[in-house]
Amino acid sequence: MEIIAIILGGVLINNFVFMQYLGLCPFVGVSRQLETALGMSGAVVFVMTMASAVTAALEIYVLAPLGLGYLRTIAYILVIASFVQLVEIFMKKAAPGLYKALGIYLPLITTNCAVLGVTMLNVRRSYGILLSTLNGLAGALGWSLAIIIFAGIRERWRLMDIPKTLEGFPLALISTGLMSLAFLGFQNLFKAAFH
């Protein structure tokens, strides 16, 4: 039951973008085109899931037994940063087209606060390795859902004549607000079943 709760929670009910304010910079930055949004989603799903697993292991086997909880922030960010480097090197070799499309955003996953955010949430909820990984995956899928929906909407904006004062962030934030209003419909979904 907890597994379903985590997945539904991450994707719909407590969506990272719409309900938790996490990962907003790339959400606005990479959502102009559906193709790049999809590529970025793939990268985020991979990095967030793996980062959750790795940091959970680090927490359980190193930080907690040694009483180094106060070094968590530094340790996590270093793990995530080196992990992203690895993905970058791998992608450059294996999928140069995708690598080119994602451009500067790949290294920026390090500063995607959703990635560090989900690992911090895992610790706070004291999930084990399995549940942490699942939570990372669910959060990343929710983030991807949000950016794919938004990219679909934004592609239509190419037809319209946006005033300069609204271009970019103002309009993106207002749209995110409207999307988040719609996602309020999922609040407390299956609450009776889970608690």
Partner: peptide, 18 residues
Amino acid sequence: WGGYPEGVSYSILLMNLV
């Protein structure tokens, strides 16, 4: 199964998004 008695308006809004 949701938190509200009625879901019609949210359902249409959500389908608007996709």
